[in-house]
Design a protein around this nucleic acid. Sequence first.
DNA 1: CTGTGTGCAAAACGTTTGCATGCCT
DNA 2: AGGCATGCAAACGTTTTGCACACAG
Lengths: 140, 140
Amino acid sequence: MNTADSLVEKFRDKRFKITPQRMGIFKILEGNLEHPSAENVFDKIKKIYPTISFTTVYKTLDILEKMGEVLKITIDDERKHYDPNTATHHHIICLGCNKISDIEGGHINPTLPDGILNEFIPSRYHVSFYGTCKDCLNEQ
Amino acid sequence: MNTADSLVEKFRDKRFKITPQRMGIFKILEGNLEHPSAENVFDKIKKIYPTISFTTVYKTLDILEKMGEVLKITIDDERKHYDPNTATHHHIICLGCNKISDIEGGHINPTLPDGILNEFIPSRYHVSFYGTCKDCLNEQ
DNA sequence: CTGTGTGCAAAACGTTTGCATGCCT
DNA sequence: AGGCATGCAAACGTTTTGCACACAG
């Protein structure tokens, strides 16, 4: 769980500057379970800091990703999403509204067939469940 | 497994025309385990049918995807990949060379925690293992 | 013969980059 | 004061679209 404060500290360690723009982005990411795209982050921070540019949002997210503080999620064809929860966890994606939600709990532990381990060293894995959420079911 | 012939038949059923361009794309997809991008398909078919355009490749892949004859794989940030193997199966992705390979066998059966099934009806799932392949290990 | 498919060029889209100015440290 | 961060505009790579011509049915 990345608090804005912990990100500030990590930025200071690396001699990156703490600007109001970056601070705003940190706060938006803190505890964020929505898997926002860069645009989502931009829209939110624009309300607080209306002069911010897309460039700054992209660059800040890029730094955070390189630092390992957010994960880039490649689930959506159209745009990249970011997840401040960097612990191993998995996602359900609604094919109706494209909403991405976390799966709670450690119930999912896929393992590779033995033979593959001779040819491939896995470092992480990710499970995506595609389906329909309650809201979209009701709409049909 | 989609043979070119079976795709021809499905196109005929839907009154889509069979052109040499489409036929060439079908043949490239037949038994293809490389998870090609649109560009990969374009490069291959260009050798056989040099006047073909990107537009035709994109449109044909789009039709095939809407018909459910290929799956769009969203694993790579940079571009979309297509998989003519529409049976449930999973992938290993080398972080060194970005190669996507199939995992053989049905060893992987992730299940959702019970609680989630009240809120979400899964229709399919996909597991991605990220790691390093033999070739890339040897290079280091 | 009719209408769908093709291919060009241009647009669209999300994302990245170059550069002058601004501001954190 | 110095140098990194910002924000604009332009570039980028992939994908989509509009349209006139071609050709499969």
